[in-house]
Design a protein around this nucleic acid. Sequence first.
DNA 1: GATGAATGAGCATTCATTCAT
DNA 2: AATGAATGAATGCTCATTCAT
Lengths: 209, 209, 209, 209
Amino acid sequence: MTHSPRRRGDQSEAEPGEPATSPRRDQIIRAAYFTIAEEGFEGLRTRDVAGKVGINSATLHYYFRDKEALVQGVVAFMMKELSRPRVAVGPTASALDRLRAEFSDIKARIRDAPEQLIVLTELTLRAFRDPKIAQLLRELDQGWHAHLVSILEAGIAEKLFRTDIDAGATASALMAQLRGLVYQGGIGPKKRQALIDQIALQTERWVRK
Amino acid sequence: MTHSPRRRGDQSEAEPGEPATSPRRDQIIRAAYFTIAEEGFEGLRTRDVAGKVGINSATLHYYFRDKEALVQGVVAFMMKELSRPRVAVGPTASALDRLRAEFSDIKARIRDAPEQLIVLTELTLRAFRDPKIAQLLRELDQGWHAHLVSILEAGIAEKLFRTDIDAGATASALMAQLRGLVYQGGIGPKKRQALIDQIALQTERWVRK
Amino acid sequence: MTHSPRRRGDQSEAEPGEPATSPRRDQIIRAAYFTIAEEGFEGLRTRDVAGKVGINSATLHYYFRDKEALVQGVVAFMMKELSRPRVAVGPTASALDRLRAEFSDIKARIRDAPEQLIVLTELTLRAFRDPKIAQLLRELDQGWHAHLVSILEAGIAEKLFRTDIDAGATASALMAQLRGLVYQGGIGPKKRQALIDQIALQTERWVRK
Amino acid sequence: MTHSPRRRGDQSEAEPGEPATSPRRDQIIRAAYFTIAEEGFEGLRTRDVAGKVGINSATLHYYFRDKEALVQGVVAFMMKELSRPRVAVGPTASALDRLRAEFSDIKARIRDAPEQLIVLTELTLRAFRDPKIAQLLRELDQGWHAHLVSILEAGIAEKLFRTDIDAGATASALMAQLRGLVYQGGIGPKKRQALIDQIALQTERWVRK
DNA sequence: GATGAATGAGCATTCATTCAT
DNA sequence: AATGAATGAATGCTCATTCAT
């Protein structure tokens, strides 16, 4: 097979054996990701991103057809990051442990990857104008909701949680609360973590028998 | 040259007789405000704003020293808008009525001024980088929190609400939930309003005796 | 009427009272025109054109939305130039004088405005890919053809020219010959003018009684 | 490194055993040639040419030092193509047949190799700035002229053509007419061929006894 | 108050070319 | 022979801002 004139970043799905990914590509995406966290989409300059990676901005365009493709790469990366749990629970963990892990997970993100919150907010904003991003966020939300519901229902089945709670509604309320916290501007990480503990406590009281 | 070299939009206090406000100035701010709601800060162009008002972009600079000053004008306008209640309650209203008015207020904003949510999110994002905006948002939050606490405490005093609720914590939780709802991308206004009703119901059950 | 946000070069037809023309605009078009003559479309750089006029390249874009609009301006200018006769004949001139004026006109162009030939060739080339230009050139040709036919027919009516010549075919043949000369690369202006005289002579012999 | 550092496409004469030609080299030239016909010199991109051949653009630079060398290759190819008659005449053909073959040749080119006209026009344009190309075109023209003169003189000698025609001038006029036709933009191949027939007829009438 | 004209700094993107492998 | 990766030098275009009128 001769050299394909298509750029690496073109296809969403890589051909087998020809991965649409490369260390350099990932490096660029990471640099762009942190740039967005620091400066916002508004402050994203391909030149700066290239500079951070230590390459020429033309090289960046060797990996990404245009800025839009780069942004899409960042979004994909972000989605994978958000889906990957940061707190592991064993397969034998109780529903309560898994619920607690949920709160720990968010606290861990706030502590170790605070940029995720910022980029997520940026994406939320983009979603108002970009239906593709809106769709992705919706899917992310649905996944989170389903995950919480499964925990709650397991807890009910395990007879750890009250049987009269509405798993769906409770999951929604929980998500709204956590999201509200995350999106609350003007407070530091410590305050944020304390508020999460508070929500965790309230929730446990609410769901446990 | 006859006109005073100091521009109207300067940060320094306006001299008496030279108001820092004018119909045209307000007109520009409103145009910028709605532009931000539609296109985001990223899409804010002084030329476009001027065009919407029907003036030359040079004229815009007569009223605002620079783009930053215009943005500050928008922020101030936004803060005033957010502080102004959209649902009036009589001075004799019960704590419960006032609590309900709180939910109605948010529903009214979602219905009549959905752009407020978007601009608020934009400001939240700016707050990560602009301490001045962070401070303003913090104050806005504190005002809201104090307001909710006063309602809850009044309800307790009126013996309408349970005496064992922690007014501060409840206010915080309520705020987080409402904020979370507001920031949830990818859902339409109707769904949003329904979720608010749900939160309202839950809250009433929680606080009422 | 407030300031129109549209750029000057946008509309093909200027509104009455608001001419789509200005000295500066013309200056830019002229500079672009001679740049094309010297460097070809391939060598047309907005920066260079602006530089020749002594303005910033951003100023050029104040008058022309984009490069394409500038090129269109040049084309329009070129068409006007080509249509404007360079050798005047009195209203009482005989058909023969008018025919001779036709040759003199081309010789005058080669002498005084040799760049017209080059730019015309460039346009011919563009016409292969740009239907709009193809159409313009076609119209130019039809105008020229009609003009020659009217001269020949007048000569026949004046009993100066042979009655058995086919005015249309002769006009076509004449045009083809002149065009061929004009497009003949690799020869200098003097040689070119001599060849025109030769064609003129031949033609006179052919048409005159 | 094993391969000779001197590239194949160098202007210097190839060493014996190291031919300045190769199937791949020709392939590249052909691809460039057709690209120029379709997009003009303006649209000639080494990457595209390489892509059409199915090689990397770096490989193209293995065969051609730079873009200029590639263009020269195309020019040489073009000159060979133009010199090669497309309509064969036997060695015993009469002058009239050979003259007719001349017209048939051009018609054949228009039909079978219309890209030659376009590339030739592109070269004509280049000749204004590139003396090397100007020289080549001049030689091409002189060859054509000599060829036509030899036909006309043979016809006179064969007593097929009038003895009072000026072979040189007639050849020039004929060339100018044909060239003019070829360069006339905005008409299709059919119309073009019909006009050639017209010129052929006229010419025959002119030269034959 | 208002504007047309002008500009500097910057930005994404393109492209011929190079070089280690 | 061939290529993936990389780059420097443009290039068209944008935009906030200025200033004389």
